[in-house]
Amino acid sequence: MIHPHTYIHPSAKLAPNVKVDPFSVIHPNVEIGEGTWIGSNVTIMEGARIGKNCRIFPGAVISAIPQDLKFEGEDSLVEIGDFTTIREFVTINRGTKERGKTAVGSNCLIQAYSHIAHDCVIGNNCILTNNTQMAGHVVMGDWAILAGMCAVHQFVQIGQHSYIGGGSLVSKDVPPFIKAARNPLSYAGVNSVGLKRRGFTIERINHILDIYRVLYNKGLNTSQALEFIEEEYPATDERDDILTFVRESGRGIIKRYTKGNNDDDLAI
């Protein structure tokens, strides 16, 4: 399973059935779970913790030191969950002392040429499409999708089940369950297609839609809208997730696009 034209440091810990193709290099202080395949010309550097049944395609570099001038050589990690696929020439940098690790969840797809910087946290079942560039300290919730060539500002929060259109510059937080698109990046409706695919009922989707109509369409400021939602809508997991996300947003949430926009694309 280990091609002779590879270099694996003696201290690296690989499960017995890990497959490593030729010309890959695995540094010390690396752990790789069973069933994982490492393609050719992959570099896995110190501090990588890779789960079971992952696939890492040629040219990827996992757990290189952060591209951060305040990094002082401290011990840190990259953690990658089970069944995650990392395509060609992806780069994932390890953490700094701020968080201590960069984490990518299970069942994720990180497509070619994407970059995940230091201290990012990517949830489970996420997709980063080709050429997505993610700065440090970004947090991305479960089932979120970034379409191709998105650029994400440092410290941005991306909510669960959200979808961000291709070529977007993401400089504000993106709340859960929504679509975001246009320039500047704006609220573009509830991600109803994605939610249906994941088993959300029409009633749950309409409940989410009603909440966002208050937040974005009712003419209230954010504080007023949150107060109205909390008073007028029954407590559900979705309602509470939205309220918590918006209240805890550090960079502020994206706004509604105003030029010629309407609600036609929001109907279920």
Rank of each mutant, 00 (worst) to 15 (best):
M1V: 09
H3A: 11
P4K: 10
V18H: 05
V18C: 03
P22H: 04
S24Y: 06
V25D: 12
I26R: 10
I32L: 05
I32P: 08
T36L: 12
G39R: 06
S40H: 14
R55P: 02
R55W: 11
D68M: 07
L69N: 09
L69S: 11
K70E: 09
K70S: 14
F71Q: 11
G73R: 08
S76I: 05
E79D: 07
T84H: 03
I86Y: 09
T91R: 09
R94T: 10
E98L: 14
G100W: 07
A103V: 15
A103G: 09
A112S: 13
S114G: 15
H115C: 02
I116H: 14
A117H: 08
H118P: 07
D119Q: 08
N124P: 01
I127H: 03
N130M: 02
A135C: 10
M140H: 00
G141H: 05
A144Q: 08
A147L: 12
A151R: 12
Q154R: 13
V156H: 08
Q157P: 04
G159F: 04
Q160I: 07
K172T: 01
P175K: 02
P176G: 00
F177D: 01
I178W: 02
N183F: 14
G189S: 08
V190P: 05
G194V: 05
F200Y: 14
I202E: 15
I202P: 06
E203G: 09
L209H: 11
I211P: 12
V214D: 06
T222Y: 06
Q224W: 04
Q224H: 10
L226P: 12
E227Y: 03
D240T: 03
I242T: 02
F245T: 01
E248Y: 03
E248A: 13
R251K: 15
K259L: 15
N262K: 05
N262S: 14
N262H: 09
D264F: 14
A267T: 09
